[in-house]
Amino acid sequence: MADDKVTLVRQFIEGMPHSRALDLRVEYLEDGVSEISMPYDPKLVGDPATGVIHGGAVSALMDTSGGAAVMSHPTDSLGTATLDLRIDYMRPATPGQRITARAECYHVTRSIAFVRAVATDEDRDRPVATATGAFTLERPKKSEDQV
């Protein structure tokens, strides 16, 4: 993946106001694959008795990594929107640990990207959550001489 495209997608993803509110960091971008991480923050806790992060924050991280995977796909999509996202919660994330979501477009059609994602904390072998989603794909219009 070209360096300038990596920079562009990274800036777009990290620059979103909600990404900044969650302090998201783009760890890795490759053709149709993204890894984005979210640091532990007490303000995101969903269960004060245990200090476990709320599922909603994990959903936001998963959705963002899915969108980033679509943006980094070789189709050079001009933009993307989530059509559908299903999240399965496997276990509570360990309090104090950074959560990383890795998403990949496993199939793209003319207008849709099918995405899978896995979120883990520091224990990379036991997923915290998995997700599958369908995202819109906006292919750039071909100029006349390419047709």
Binding site: G15, M16, P17, H18, G56, S59, A60, T64, G79, L85
Partner: peptide, 24 residues
């Protein structure tokens, strides 16, 4: 609020915030 925005160009609520809001 500013912090719920995903795409700043539209602007639109972040899909993750929508998911979180419905889950809450």
């Amino acid at each position: 609020d500013e912090k719920v925005i995903g795409n700043t160009m539209l602007p639109a609520i972040h899909g993750g915030v929508t998911a979180a809001f419905l889950e809450v």
